[in-house]
Design a protein around this nucleic acid. Sequence first.
DNA 1: AATCTTTATCGTAATATTGCAATATTAAAC
DNA 2: GTTTAATATTGCAATATTACGATAAAGATT
Lengths: 110, 110
Amino acid sequence: MGATKTDHFTDKQNAIATLAKALGHPARIAIIEYLLKVDTCICGDIVNELPLAQPTVSQHLKELKNAGIIKGNIEGNAICYCIDEKVFAKLQSYFTGVETKIEKKKNNCC
Amino acid sequence: MGATKTDHFTDKQNAIATLAKALGHPARIAIIEYLLKVDTCICGDIVNELPLAQPTVSQHLKELKNAGIIKGNIEGNAICYCIDEKVFAKLQSYFTGVETKIEKKKNNCC
DNA sequence: AATCTTTATCGTAATATTGCAATATTAAAC
DNA sequence: GTTTAATATTGCAATATTACGATAAAGATT
């Protein structure tokens, strides 16, 4: 096969997995970190920053956009990409929740 | 091609991407959540909990183990899997850092 | 309007992932 | 030692991802 069986899992599980998957590539992590670094959310500079060809970067940007992690505004003939805050808040709260549960558990086996 | 160009990115970027990628599947999120839910970190019940065949679950467990997210102790003829706390602490601190940077930025464009 | 700039899309090759049946492995139980 | 139970591994088919050259699309510039 090769297709993920998303319908057997909860919406929340699928949502977190989708976000994690979108961040599961170093180029996409690099894009996020670049967007965090620059003050103005400039666009096509991303292509110059990354060691990848323009169509490849465009594809990674599309995936981040599909996952809702970034959004793009058309600005003349350029495009201004920036991070969608809500999504990272969601991720942070998810992982904080995991941490809390781990701490409560007092791992007494492994 | 099809192979990720990991050598062009920083170790930290690759490390986060690897963790995110390992969590980028609903079955693996479900495994983590199951391990958080049960008190004793029991093992083969995971197969019964998931809507996937035993070899498939075994493969997902292997990927989580390779990424360092879970670890397994042999316990007789069964195996006790449990979460590696350090990794989630790393993820949480990464996303908290991202959040902090986002808040400092005062998005004035998109 | 012709051209330049910027970004997206198409087409395609290489590789990776997902999923499972069949089989192997390993240790307990008898 | 043979059977049983729990996991892992192998082999394979279907699909997805990664990467890039070529090309298209859309607004800016001349």
